[in-house]
Amino acid sequence: MGAYRVILLVTLGVYLLLKGIGFVYGVALPSSVVSMYVFFTFLVTVLIISVTDKGALSLTTPIIEFLYKEEKKKLRKVVFVVLPFVLAFIAYAFTKPSYEEPFTLRVVHPAPPRIVNAYDRNIELEKIKNPIRELTGDAYEEAVHDGGEIYFKNCFFCHGAKLDGKGHFAKGLNPAPLPFTGKDTIAQLEESYVFWRVVKGGEGLPEESAPWMSVMPVWEESLKEEEVWKVVTFIYEYTGNEPRRWEK
């Protein structure tokens, strides 16, 4: 049985090593690749052992003893009854249709383009600033108030009265409208990013955000540039979020 123990140990060792690599790295190796590697490790180990006569003998003897020795009769009977069922189950497992949920990647916040063509000019998103933020005092307050008005005339049907993404139409949409409350949507984004998303809508999303393209309209067609900025400022003000900034 020595040969089989070696094979078992080596195969198991390689399996654990591969799992260990995945564990240390943080992203597990794909199971299809792991099983392929383990399978060939097993094969090569058998080959190495069977090169010599002695090794080959140590591989075949246990099988032949198992098959033909009088003492192993009971074991044999058990195995020969169970084995067909095991094999049948394997065959069944491979042939039965799978009900696994089809999975498609969809990036919710894809990398923005560096330049966006909107309002008939090329806008560099890295350089553009929110003009509303330069206002102070009453002018600023008024702009935010205007933004609120624009929001409730246009956005609230989907994004909701509380800006929580639970508007009237929200249930019918997939992907669902994003909430602005909470710390993981607009709080993570620069204002220029939000501006791009409003202006270009679902149609302007890059391919990695497909499938189920968002139904966010292209607001460039119905809102003025200034109005968009007002709305953007409003949703930050209303939810108490700060836009992400790279420098102070």
């Binding site: 990398a111 383009p113 560096r114 330049i115 063509n117 090329n122 560099e124 890059p206």
Partner: peptide, 10 residues
């Protein structure tokens, strides 16, 4: 070609 507008201008 993802960001072709920016790349071509630059």
């Amino acid at each position: 070609l993802k960001d072709i507008l920016a790349i071509s201008i630059e």
